[in-house]
């Protein structure tokens, strides 16, 4: 079957199997392999992308459900930002929030959404907002530090975090 959608601002028309997931469409059909498959069951969050501005675990969304949708993946998150890096991405680099990095694309998507949706969230609330994403390496400490750093910069007149 065929689905038409926008991925990272580009109009795409993709031929795929009826039972194929959005994650599979992104990774196999479009070669956008930044979104990872850690479990395929919606539990680890490594495949998080935005569909029409809302974060979803793309392994649980059928590609066919995305007809006409605006999809943003980790590859498109930094579009329009200085040096192609969203403030959250930049903060993850600087604070050393990345280790093996497999969970990181999903966590960055969830974090970018969190600080835009709840810009005043305290650290405890931020924990809740990224609780759907599992990480096995980092201890989350620096991930939370990075999100707070990005948010503080956005507040103090830095580049806006909006991406959607």
């Amino acid at each position: 079957m065929r689905t038409r959608l926008h991925v990272n601002g580009e109009a795409r028309e993709v031929e795929h199997e009826p039972q194929e997931t959005l994650l599979s469409l992104l990774r196999y059909r479009l070669g956008l392999t930044g979104s990872k498959e850690g479990c395929g069951e919606g539990e680890c969050g490594a495949c998080t992308v935005f569909v029409d501005g809302a974060p979803v675990v793309s392994c649980l969304v059928l590609a066919a459900q995305c007809e006409g949708a605006q999809v943003t993946t980790i590859e498109g998150l930094g579009r329009g930002h200085p040096d192609g890096l969203h403030p959250v991405q930049r903060a993850f680099i600087e604070t050393g929030a990345v280790q093996c990095g497999f969970c990181i694309p999903g966590i960055i998507m969830a974090a970018a959404d969190a600080i835009e949706r709840e810009p005043d969230a305290d650290r405890e609330s931020l924990r809740r907002l990224v609780a759907g994403n599992l990480c096995r390496c980092t201890g989350y400490t620096k991930i939370l530090d990075a999100i707070e750093l990005a948010r503080a910069r956005a507040r103090s007149g830095g580049p806006p975090c909006s991406t959607k």
Partner: peptide, 22 residues
């Protein structure tokens, strides 16, 4: 305390892991 060299690749989704081979 230098940030890791491959951090940019990892935060932009450009780092290629095994399952990313196409």
């Amino acid at each position: 305390p230098h940030p890791r060299l491959e951090a940019r690749l990892k935060v932009t989704g450009a780092a290629r892991y095994t399952a990313d081979q196409r």
